[in-house]
C-alpha cells in the first residue's frame, strides 16, 4: 500500500536529476554527430571551395553586424586577410582567418542583440520627480 508514494517519489527524484544530464549529453552527442558529418562532408570538398564558403559565411555575418551598426574593426581586418590569402592560394590561412572573422562577427551580432535593451542601464537614471515624463518615442 505504501509502495506507490515510495515509487513515485523515487521516480520523480531520479528523473529530476537525470533529465538535465541526459539532455546535455544528448545535445553534446548530437552536436558531435553534426560536427563529424560536417567534417565528413568537408573532407570531400576542395580546399578552395571550403575557403570560399567560410569567407562567404563570414561576410554574411559581418554585413549583418554592419547593418545593425555594430561591426567590429578586427572582424574586417580578418576578412581582408582571408580575402588576400584566398587570392594568394593560401587556403589554410584563408579558412582560419575567415573563421576568426565569422566568430567576431557573430559576437558583434550578439552585442547588437544585447544592446537592444541593455543600453538603458548605461545612462544615469532620471530624478524621481521627472519619471512621470510623457511617452517619448524611441528609435528602433
Amino acid at each position: 500500500m505504501n509502495i506507490l508514494p515510495k515509487l513515485s517519489i523515487a521516480l520523480i527524484l531520479m528523473s529530476s536529476l537525470l533529465l538535465p544530464a541526459c539532455s546535455e549529453q544528448g545535445a553534446d552527442r548530437s552536436s558531435e554527430v553534426d560536427k563529424r558529418s560536417d567534417t565528413d562532408k568537408n573532407s570531400n570538398k576542395e580546399p578552395a571551395t571550403l575557403a570560399e564558403n567560410a569567407l562567404a559565411q563570414a561576410w554574411d555575418n559581418y554585413n549583418a553586424s554592419e547593418q545593425a551598426g555594430f561591426a567590429w574593426v578586427n572582424a574586417k581586418v580578418a576578412l581582408n586577410t582571408a580575402t588576400w590569402a584566398l587570392s594568394e592560394g593560401d587556403f589554410e590561412t584563408a579558412i582560419a582567418e575567415a573563421n576568426q572573422a565569422n566568430s567576431l562577427a557573430e559576437s558583434s551580432l550578439a552585442q547588437a542583440a544585447a544592446a537592444q535593451n541593455d543600453w538603458r542601464k548605461h545612462f544615469p537614471k532620471a530624478p524621481a520627480k521627472a519619471s512621470s515624463a510623457p511617452n517619448v518615442p524611441e528609435a528602433n
Partner: peptide
C-alpha cells in the same frame, strides 16, 4: 524625439570588441 533618442541610444550602447559605450567612459 526619435532623433534625440537615437543619439541617446547610440551614446549608451556598448559596441566594439572592447564592449564599451560612450557612457562607459564618460559617465
Amino acid at each position: 524625439l526619435l532623433a534625440y533618442n537615437d543619439g541617446k541610444r547610440f551614446y549608451s550602447s556598448r559596441r566594439g570588441q572592447l564592449n564599451f559605450a560612450c557612457s562607459s567612459c564618460h559617465v
